[in-house]
């Protein structure tokens, strides 16, 4: 197989590579039933929405965040005090995640509102590639196990991967990505996570 790397794998090794974790026949029916059951348990496929509805979700989320923030302040209990090495580590990951989310928010806001210069402008894909690397690193830390944060990181991984590919794709795709950002309410979700802050607890002596 020509791959442009000028170092073809030796035929013997290539044949052996095919045996690397050779997949057995899948149980297609069992998996299909499981998929159907899971989809019935959660909201299903999102049908395309009319333009006016694109803003309904982000606006609703923003309103809920404001309401939640107000209620949280009103009903707040004294902060939990956490000590020890785990607290230091968790806090470090939370701070890193918050700093990263702030950078992504700035980047996506810039991307969404910037002039349509792509694909000639390679700044956005380069930045997206760097942020994509950080996203994958974060998914590998305890911050990536946060039930609030993980779905957002996974969605960001896909969006950043799309932007990272922009320079190699036809012009006009930027608008499609922006449209996807709006429909997923990505910026509103990011802002709600950024405003929620990195520290749910005071970590005594952690830093």
């Amino acid at each position: 197989m020509a791959d442009g790397t000028n170092d073809e794998l030796e035929p013997g090794l290539r044949a052996m590579a095919q045996d690397y974790r050779r997949p057995p026949t899948p149980d297609r029916e069992a998996m299909w039933h499981a998929i159907r059951a899971r989809r019935q348990a959660i909201p299903g496929i999102r049908a395309p929405r009319p333009a006016w509805r694109r803003w309904a979700f982000p606006v609703g989320v923003a309103a809920l965040v404001i309401l939640g923030f107000g209620l949280g302040r009103w009903t707040a209990e004294p902060p939990v005090v956490v000590t020890g090495a785990h607290a230091t580590s968790d806090l470090a990951h939370q701070v890193a995640a918050a700093e990263y989310l702030g950078r992504v928010e700035v980047f996506l806001t810039d991307f969404r509102s910037g002039p349509g210069r792509l694909p000639a402008d390679t700044t956005f894909p380069e930045q997206a590639r760097r942020l994509l690397g950080t996203t994958r690193l974060l998914l590998d830390t305890p911050a990536g196990e946060d039930r609030r944060l993980r779905p957002l990181l996974e969605d960001l991984e896909l969006v950043l991967a799309q932007i990272a590919q922009l320079s190699e794709r036809p012009a006009g795709e930027r608008a499609l990505i922006t449209d996807g950002l709006d429909r997923q309410g990505m910026l509103a979700r990011l802002r709600s996570n950024v405003s929620a802050g990195p520290m749910p607890a005071i970590s005594q002596g952690a830093l």
């Binding site: 998996m31 998929i35 795709e173």
Partner: peptide
């Protein structure tokens, strides 16, 4: 099997975003 199911659940839920 678990990852295959995860993939299709995610794919179906995001299909509207496929351009």
């Amino acid at each position: 099997a678990e990852w295959t199911q995860d993939t299709f659940v995610r794919a179906f839920s995001r299909l509207a975003d496929f351009r």
